[in-house]
């Protein structure tokens, strides 16, 4: 639990926590096997800056702009990606929800 708190202080959490318009830095993947492989192939590699772009009208999935492509992930799948929220993206400097 101490670890979780520490992670939260650093602003690290699952990708699904990013609201549309917010940017984040991929810090790790918690999935294994084929899902991890697939995420890596799609460009969700640690060190990648990405941004939540828009959310489906029904609330799920959310589209993320990552390495020049827009890719939609369901919340359950997006939770396999750990991100650090970009400090500026929470404030007024947040970019418009579109890339």
């Amino acid at each position: 639990m101490a670890r979780t708190n520490e992670a939260e202080r650093k602003g690290i959490g699952p990708l699904a926590l990013l609201a549309p318009g917010e940017a984040g830095l991929v810090v790790g993947l918690s999935a294994g096997g084929l899902v991890r492989r697939r995420l890596l192939d799609l460009g969700f590699v640690p060190g990648t800056v990405l941004r939540a772009v828009r959310r489906s009208p029904l609330g799920d999935p959310t589209a993320y702009s990552v390495r020049g492509a827009v890719i939609a992930l369901r919340a359950a799948d997006a939770n396999n990606i750990l991100v650090r929220r970009a400090p500026e993206s929470t404030g007024a400097t947040a970019a418009a929800p579109d890339d």
Binding site: R3, A7, I12, V27, G28, L29, S30, R36, R37, L40, D41, G43, V45, P46, G47, T48, R67, L82
Partner: peptide, 20 residues
């Protein structure tokens, strides 16, 4: 960079090299 929740695999490092 690598939090303990996600051990880095060879695959991660290979892909990271390619993307770098």
């Amino acid at each position: 960079m690598n939090p303990p929740q996600s051990p880095v695999t060879v695959a991660d490092r290979v892909v990271a090299s390619l993307y770098r």
